[in-house]
Design a protein around this nucleic acid. Structure first.
Lengths: 190, 190
DNA sequence: AAAATGACCAAAATGTTCATTTAGTCAATT
DNA sequence: AATTGACTAAATGAACATTTTGGTCATTTT
């Protein structure tokens, strides 16, 4: 026993949130999965929501990590942002916890989940915004409102990756890169 | 009596859908408002959904009409598409029935309403797509996939007009035109 | 005869009750 | 000092009763 009780709890909760979502995960369930008395959870976390927050913070870090891994200082700003956004949304599409959370938001609208998804989006936008600011600084792109641009880039990618699929054949990764380049880089003017 | 019974029914239903939404409108209600026996409704419309469809078709026509009114052959393709999309979304923001429907979709997810909103979006995209195809034909813009472009333009406008407001100060009409021009026309390249 | 009607019905939605479950606490235990 | 699980007040939802609703059709009105 008594290895790292806090980590045991986090692991158990992560597993349960991933499998059943936030609402359907009970603290009794987490305690049993973690081989811990329920009271112990409350010595590490103020309540269920705080436990949830800590786990989602980890998810956000992992997304950032995944994005960092595909970026390459050798490549252009646009190629890098494309890689980062595509990787982040791919991650969201594959990661059990992320999948479950977006499903719960859609199907049940659990308030705690809505809040956490807002945080997630804000983190992605802040991350892209940094990259945009650096690119403007370096003179790689035209000056623009970095916040709005980051916001629109994320919207564009979500639209192309998630929304487009609702009524059409999914778009290839290369096609998406091409569209991103066409609209954000070159523009439609001749 | 017996003026135009079908129109009376449509008017009553439009009023009720606008005031209470689809689900909360009963056929008894419509009949009473229209000063008509309930059975009479069913001599003109197969069921509640078909009555709804006809009313939404009218809404779509009105939106097209509103868009047409602000377009001007003298102006550029971009200025015209901006005017059209802005006008359509302004209409959606102001028109009682449209407001109620989007609210019902968000808050209750009524299937019949979801369906109708899909139709509405498809109509807007088809409308913009036509304009894009004409512009490509005329050589006003670079050739591109008109369907995807129309889809993205609508997404961009919805993002700027509705989504941005959720966390920020609303954007001015001119600011939106400027952003539209920056991203879709000129691009960020220097 | 044709058009209009509203009482009627099955089915769906809604309200109500109450036993079960749940988040969080805290006195007892280790 | 750390851990625990029995305990409580609140939330949930299953089961049942009641009401409402979309749609029909025999009767009435024109």
């Amino acid at each position: 026993m008594a290895v790292n009780r806090k980590q045991q709890i986090i692991d158990a909760a992560t597993k349960s949130f991933s499998l059943f979502g936030y609402k359907a995960t009970t603290m009794d369930q987490v305690a049993k999965l973690a081989n811990v008395g329920k009271g112990t959870i409350y010595t590490f976390f103020k309540n269920k929501e705080e436990l949830f927050d800590e786990i989602v913070s980890t998810l956000i870090s992992e997304m950032k990590e995944a994005a960092e891994q595909v970026m390459d200082p050798q490549l252009s700003f646009f190629e890098n942002v494309h890689r980062a956004l595509y990787r982040i949304l791919e991650f969201r599409k594959q990661h059990q916890l992320a999948i479950k959370l977006f499903q719960e938001e859609r199907e049940m609208g659990t308030p705690a989940v809505q809040e956490v998804i807002k945080k997630l989006e804000a983190a992605i936008i802040a991350y892209i915004k940094e990259k945009i600011e650096a690119a403007i600084e370096k003179g790689e792109i035209r000056p623009c409102d970095a916040e709005i641009t980051a916001f629109l880039m994320l919207k564009l990618y979500v639209a192309l990756i998630f929304d487009w699929e609702k009524n059409h054949e999914p778009l290839e990764k290369e096609k998406i890169a091409e569209l991103f380049e066409l609209y954000f880089l070159k523009g439609l003017s001749k």
